[in-house]
Design a protein around this nucleic acid. Sequence first.
DNA 1: AAATAGCTCCGACTTGAGGCGGAGCTAAAA
DNA 2: TTTTAGCTCCGCCTCAAGTCGGAGCTATTT
Lengths: 212, 212
Amino acid sequence: MNENIKVMIVDDHDMVRKGLTAYLSTESEIEIVGEASSGNEAVRVFETLKPEVILMDLIMEDGDGIDATKQILSKDPSKKIIILTSFYDDEQVFPALESGAMSYLLKTASSEEIIRAIQKAHYGKTVIDGKVAQKLVAGLHKHPEPFDRLTVREKEVLKLIAEGKNNSEIATTLFIGIKTVKTHVSSILSKLEVADRTQAAIYAYQNHLFNE
Amino acid sequence: MNENIKVMIVDDHDMVRKGLTAYLSTESEIEIVGEASSGNEAVRVFETLKPEVILMDLIMEDGDGIDATKQILSKDPSKKIIILTSFYDDEQVFPALESGAMSYLLKTASSEEIIRAIQKAHYGKTVIDGKVAQKLVAGLHKHPEPFDRLTVREKEVLKLIAEGKNNSEIATTLFIGIKTVKTHVSSILSKLEVADRTQAAIYAYQNHLFNE
DNA sequence: AAATAGCTCCGACTTGAGGCGGAGCTAAAA
DNA sequence: TTTTAGCTCCGCCTCAAGTCGGAGCTATTT
């Protein structure tokens, strides 16, 4: 494989694209065929630019990187997409890799690391940043979420508890009786292994169950 | 003022520093005298590099930008520090400007915007990104934090409520009587204008009162 | 000296929260 | 067909939660 590797950069920070270009221009094997400043723009232009490898940021104003990755791969599964982002939350890493991305790097990476990741991606090999990998295995070791043991109805009730509603308000919201609400609440408390509705609400917030 | 403006770049992303350097090298008036990859490093080296303007990222592994800004300005208040970050949360903007930073830009800014901000900073003029400014005025319009009306003791009690403790647990934790706890709780509820301890705990989480 | 604010505590009272046990209904699984 | 799981509802019970009004103490302010 002596040809150039065609690379496309997707990032909403102009200076990051500039910096990456400076990084990669030192490597004769790599050719930057284009840039995009948002996920949606990337989806629009990648078929024209025909890159083999795509460096993709995650958080962007107009169409995030995960969405863009899914859409691009659904149109052309042969594309190798490398996530290149600033963060390594569980919330970010899992969906990103599920979306079909080949590698996951952090923006603190050196130019050598990025170049190597591009080369490996070209051959179909995955590169995961060390810190991200740690989070990944930590995430797998995590307790089999007691939240998932809740029924649909119980999750609805928990959501309303986390909004600060009392039992009668929940009852009128869900068009059911107060007694039924109490049944659900009791079930929720025992499944989450908490003592009262306040601790249930706290549980919901600490586990970011209902956004924020 | 025909001399060069001496600029220092503080960012933990190598590629961002590269990109910024590429940005600013087009402008003959600006001279980059050094870089730092963390807040603590910036504090250590700025006296040697003698920059006039410092471009400062906020979130960094080893010493965040707000801390670094405070420390640098306490040693030399004449430095002009421009915050250059990806986000514009209320939680970020206020402490950043309180720390004494002169300007607040987003990383989506163009090279012209950054160059202009550096020039203005040099003359002591502030530049705030439009989106950030919006958040700012929205923040000022916000209710004059009812949380601040709580007494020290009440804040302690609220913290324990947000940890899921009941009244008797709070009593033993603070070495006071249950009746006293109830008094504090009632006072907290009326000051925060919420109905019960669950809503108080939710209030604490939504306003990020006790980290996370 | 007097007023104010904060922390402490008390008794009495009302009510919502939650546990326990039981039950009917429906839909899916064994 | 029988069993199981989920949603619904009931009564009874206990107790924590929260309100109201009152009070003593200290430190600061006026």
